[in-house]
């Protein structure tokens, strides 16, 4: 069917519009090319919007949340242990101090024993007697 005939048949009026020459000849090939491109884009878009993608994002968030919780729990657990240690130490100190008499402390301070000092020979004798390696002490300090 001729294009011009169709125009006249459709319009039944004078058609003032023209079409570029050969426009309809390659229309189908251009259209199918565009459809192919659309399908390719759709495949790409489909992946990003697919349930697999959503599931992987949800799983990542869940793993991240779980890791964060574990790290938080671990850090708090250490704090709890430290706190309990402190409280035990504090309670021991309190109990020890409760048995210390104030006058006894004054006596100890004012007595001659407070001036007790260690001579160099005493230290050497102590190290020899207790078999302590002086190199080990040097390395440690």
């Amino acid at each position: 069917m001729n294009e011009e005939n169709i125009n006249n048949e459709l319009f039944n009026k004078n058609n003032p519009f023209k079409i570029p020459e050969g426009y309809f000849d390659d229309f189908n090939s251009r259209l199918f090319l565009k459809i192919e491109n659309e399908c390719e884009n759709k495949t790409r878009i489909t992946f990003w919007h697919s349930w697999k993608y959503k599931l992987s994002v949800a799983a990542s968030i869940a793993i991240l949340a779980l890791l964060s919780y574990n790290v938080y729990y671990f850090m708090n657990e250490n704090k709890i242990v430290k706190k309990s240690n402190v409280s035990i130490t504090e309670s021991i100190d309190d109990s020890e101090l409760s048995f210390v008499n104030e006058n006894h402390i004054i006596d100890v301070i004012t007595s001659d024993e407070k001036e007790q000092s260690f001579e160099g020979d005493d230290i050497i004798n102590f190290l020899v007697n207790d078999n302590i390696d002086e190199n080990a002490i040097a390395e440690a300090y």
Binding site: M1, N7, F11, F17, I19, Y23, F24, L31, K34, I35
Partner: peptide, 28 residues
């Protein structure tokens, strides 16, 4: 249907290039 639809669109949009775009989108 491409010719019939082309003229239906062309009369509304007047411009050929616009008509071409819309006709392709119609078939897609």
């Amino acid at each position: 249907y491409k010719v019939k639809l082309y003229w239906h669109i062309r009369k509304l949009l007047v411009n050929h290039d616009d008509t071409d775009d819309v006709l392709q989108n119609t078939f897609i």
